[in-house]
Design a binder for these strands. Sequence first.
DNA 1: TAGCTATTCTCATTAATTGGGAATAACCTC
DNA 2: GAGGTTATTCCCAATTAATGAGAATAGCTA
Lengths: 251, 251
Amino acid sequence: MTGSKNNPGPTGKALGLLKEVIALHGKPFHPETISKKTGVPVANLYRYLNSFLEARLLIHPARGEYLPHPSFLSLLSTLTSKEVLDRVIRPKLERLVRILPTTLHFGVLESEMVTYLIKVSPKGQMLFTKENMQLEAYCSSIGKVLLAAMQDADIKIYLEGDSFPALTRYTITDPERIKAEILKTRQRGYGIDDREIHEDLFCLAVPVVSTLGETIGAISAASNLGDLLAKDIDLTLKELRAVAKNVGSVF
Amino acid sequence: MTGSKNNPGPTGKALGLLKEVIALHGKPFHPETISKKTGVPVANLYRYLNSFLEARLLIHPARGEYLPHPSFLSLLSTLTSKEVLDRVIRPKLERLVRILPTTLHFGVLESEMVTYLIKVSPKGQMLFTKENMQLEAYCSSIGKVLLAAMQDADIKIYLEGDSFPALTRYTITDPERIKAEILKTRQRGYGIDDREIHEDLFCLAVPVVSTLGETIGAISAASNLGDLLAKDIDLTLKELRAVAKNVGSVF
DNA sequence: TAGCTATTCTCATTAATTGGGAATAACCTC
DNA sequence: GAGGTTATTCCCAATTAATGAGAATAGCTA
C-alpha cells in the first residue's frame, strides 16, 4: 500500500528524473528535451540534478553529461536483480510447498529461453530441473505463460526465429500450433505442460504480474503424471494464483 | 560546483536515506535505529520510503524489509563503476598525453593489488603494461600512492600479510623500508618507481582525490629511464597534478 | 490470543519548492 | 582568440508541500 494521502513525501518527479538520467547511460543530456519528456521545468531539472550530485548519486563530468556515481554503482553492485527476486520469492514458495506437495519453480524469460531461478521441492520428490537451468520456452508451462505475456509482434518474431525440436512425442513443434497454444494460454490465464518436456511430467504455471501490470516471471507446480489428479488442478491453480498475486504485489 | 544557495532542490536527507537503505542489503530496517543514525524523524522515514516505493526504486517485501527494486538494479547493471571511471578519466588522459609524451596510467587498489584500468600511450612508445593488468602495489608508483592513502592500521596489515618479491635489483623488499617509502610518498604527495618493477622504467604518480577527500585512484606517467630528465620531473608532476585535481573534482 | 514493533495518521506550523524568463558561463568552431 | 551556441544558474514572490511529535493502527510471532 504505497502513496499516503495526507502526508506526501518529497516529490516523486525528482526521483523519476534520477531514473531518466541513469537510463541515458551517459548520452548527452538535453535539458529542453528532458524537460518536455518529463514535464519538469528546466529550472527544476537542475535543482534536482544538483541534489543528486550533492547526494553523490550522480556525477557531472562535463557539460550536458550526467552519469551514476561510481560509489553508488558499487553500493548497488553488491546485489543483483536475481538475488532480490530470490530473496522475495523463495520464502513464499517454501511456504507454499508445505501445503502443495509439488515441485515449485519460479522462472523468467531471458533471450527467448526460460531460466529457472528458484526450485523448491517437497521431501522426496526428485526432478531433473536445476536452478539457473535454461529450458525452451515453447514446451514449458512457465515459458508458455511468459510468451503469452509478450507483445504479438514479439511472439511473431519468436515463432519465426527459432526451430522447435520435440523433446517427447507430445511436444508441440509446429509454429502454428505453438502460436495457438500461446494464445490459449493467454486467454485462460495459466499455462500447461502435459508431457511436452518429459514423458512423465505435468506442469501448471501462472504469471507473476507487477503492480504496473508487467509480467516479471511465472510460478509453476510440477509433478509426476500420476500424482496430480484432475480434481487437484483447480486447487493447485488456486494456490499458485494466490502466491503469484502476493508476490506480484511487491513489485 | 554543486549546491546552489538560493534555489535548493528536494531535500538531500531523503536521498541519503535511499543510500542508507540500499546499504542495508535487506537486513532488517529498524526505524528507531535509522532515525537516530540519520537524524531523520521516524514520520519522515516512512514518507521518504513511500516515495521510493512509488518511484520503484525500492520494494517492500515484508515488514521491516526494504530492498532495491529489481528493475532499478537492472537499469544500473548496464553500467559498472569501472566503466564510469573509464569514461570520465580516459579522455582527460588522452588530452594530457599530447602535451606530456609519456605513457599514462590510471589505477586503483583492489585487494592489495594495483589494477591498471586505463593506459594511454604516446605514438610509438611501447610498454609491457596492459589494461586490467594487476601489479604489486609496493613497487609501483601508483601502488605507493594508494598505499599511502590508506589508514596506518591497514598499511600495517598489508606489510604483515604479504611477501615482497624483488622484480629488479632495485625493488624494495624489506617491509620496514617499504613502510618508510610509503610514509615518504604520503609526505611528499607523489610516488616514485625508480626501476623497481623494470630495469628500464621510471614512473611518477599522484593521487586522484574526490571532493570528499577519499583517494579513489592514482594517475602515473611512465617513461623509459633515459627519456625523463630530472628537469622534466617538476613539469610532469605539475601536469599530473592538474589532471588529477580536475578528475577528482568530478567525484 | 497476546505482545511487540513497524507503519500510518492527525494537524497546525514552518519552510522549502515552484516556474518563467533573463543572465551567465562553458564549450566548440573558425 | 573571438563569436556563436547551449547548458546552467539566478532572481523573485506566491504557492504548496514538507515537517515533526505523539497517538492510533496494523501486521507479525510465539
